[in-house]
């Protein structure tokens, strides 16, 4: 289990390489990276992510432990950033390693669903100089019910 809550930028390809190099006898590796959207049509200046130091780490640990209980996975990685993030920068990533792809895919999806609605992060978008807190979607909360 590798968890990091950090302000610093990360290179997801290096993280995947580092994560997978420590694994032995796996048959599937699933990774997901969330990126700050910044299309030409939307002039997002930047994103600010606030979190609850202490509780963030505890909650992520609980979510990852539950993932291990539910699926036969060999290892899991979670990196989540906070602070000021520019368009195009990675926000967070998860990686799951298992013997088979079904477990790896499902575990990664479960991790994503729970990180979205149960890890204490709050996103604010700054668009044309105007600040707006990103609202939680009811679909994200509903997504938890499928597990």
């Amino acid at each position: 289990m590798h968890i990091s809550v950090q302000n610093e930028f990360f290179d997801f390809s290096k993280e995947i390489e580092n994560f997978s190099s420590k694994l032995d006898n796996i048959g599937a590796l699933v990774t997901f990276t969330g990126i700050v959207r910044g299309q030409k049509s939307i002039t997002l200046d930047y994103m600010l992510i606030e979190h609850y130091p202490g509780m963030t780490e505890t909650q992520i640990k609980l979510i990852v432990k539950e993932t291990f209980k539910r699926w036969k996975i060999c290892d899991a990685l979670v990196i989540h950033r906070y602070g000021k993030l520019e368009p195009g920068e990675p926000i967070m990533m998860v990686a799951t390693a298992a013997q088979h792809r079904k477990e790896a895919f499902e575990a990664a999806e479960y991790l994503m669903d729970y990180l979205k609605s149960r890890a204490p992060f709050w996103k604010k978008e700054i668009l044309n100089g105007e600040e707006n807190w990103v609202e939680a979607k009811s679909a994200d909360e509903a997504a938890l019910n499928r597990w």
């Binding site: 989540h80 967070m92 979205k116 609605s117 149960r118 890890a119 996103k123 609202e135 909360e141």
Partner: peptide, 10 residues
Amino acid sequence: IAFFPPMTGG
């Protein structure tokens, strides 16, 4: 005790 809006991680 902490009060906060629904989380928007991920």
